[in-house]
Structure formats: structure tokens, C-alpha cells
């Protein structure tokens, strides 16, 4: 068995559909440099054998990644990484990160504990996302 660069896992409680979780994990791996250009993603059969999930889920995830231009399928061979997300690495967003740190400090000074900060952030994040869609 070939050692794959990435091993998938599923979180049943995350609220995200399984194929999106797979997509995210690939993008995360790309971001962190675990997956590089030219690396082969595990075959559908391998993923399915490991996770006991529906093959269509994996196919959908790989198609989504292909749609985003991150991977390319070579018929009969496999699916290979064609791009990296290194350009979108976190380091490039220094100013944003600093602003966020300042806001966190302010929130703590206002007396919010960790859970409240997280809740405040998540609800605002979701509401803003919905407003964007609507």
C-alpha cells in the first residue's frame, strides 16, 4: 500500500456535509504545505475503504477541488495536485492578523471569557455570511 500524503477523517458532529469536510481537509493540507504540486490524492477506493463512506461523496469532493482549479484528474491514473494555496498563506495577511489581535485584547478587557468571544465571533460571522447570500 502506498503511503498517501494525506489521511482523511470525518467529524460527524461538525455540521458540515462530508464532501465539504474532505474539500476543506485538502485545502488545509495545501495551505500547510503537506500537499505539494504533483502529489497524488488517495484514490476513491482508498478513501472509501478507510472511512466507510459513500464513493459519490469522494467523487464530489474531488470534482469540487478540480472546479476550484486545485487538482486535476488523469483518467486511469489518479487525481493530482496542480496548484498550491501557498500564495494565500497566512503570513501574507499580517495587517489583518494584527487587527484581530487588538480586537481580541479589547474583548478580554471588556470582560468576555473565551467561550463568549468565540460565540460572539461565530454568530456575527454566520449572520454576515447569510446577509451576503440573501
Amino acid at each position: 500500500m502506498e503511503p498517501w500524503m494525506i489521511e482523511f477523517h470525518l467529524d460527524g458532529r461538525s455540521g458540515l456535509s462530508p464532501y465539504l469536510q474532505l474539500v476543506r481537509q485538502v485545502r488545509q493540507a495545501l495551505r500547510l504545505g503537506l500537499l505539494r504540486e504533483g502529489d497524488q490524492l488517495p484514490t476513491v477506493k482508498e478513501v472509501v475503504a478507510g472511512l466507510a463512506i459513500n464513493p459519490n461523496t469522494v467523487l464530489k469532493a474531488y470534482r469540487e477541488l478540480e472546479h476550484e482549479g486545485l487538482v486535476a484528474a488523469r483518467p486511469g491514473v489518479g487525481t493530482f495536485v496542480t496548484a498550491t494555496l501557498a500564495d494565500a498563506s497566512l503570513a501574507a495577511h499580517g495587517p489583518l492578523r494584527q487587527e484581530l489581535r487588538r480586537w481580541l485584547a479589547r474583548a478580554r478587557r471588556a470582560g468576555l471569557d473565551e467561550e463568549s468571544i468565540e460565540a460572539l465571533f461565530m454568530t456575527t460571522f454566520r449572520t454576515a455570511a447569510e446577509e451576503d447570500i440573501a
Partner: peptide, 14 residues
């Protein structure tokens, strides 16, 4: 149970 489902899904894919 997990092993059975893994085998089943693998066969389904293949």
C-alpha cells in the same frame, strides 16, 4: 461493523 462497512464501500467503489 466498521470493517464490514469499509469492505462494502470499497467494493461499491471498485
Amino acid at each position: 461493523r466498521r470493517e464490514f462497512l469499509q469492505g462494502l464501500m470499497e467494493a461499491t467503489a471498485e
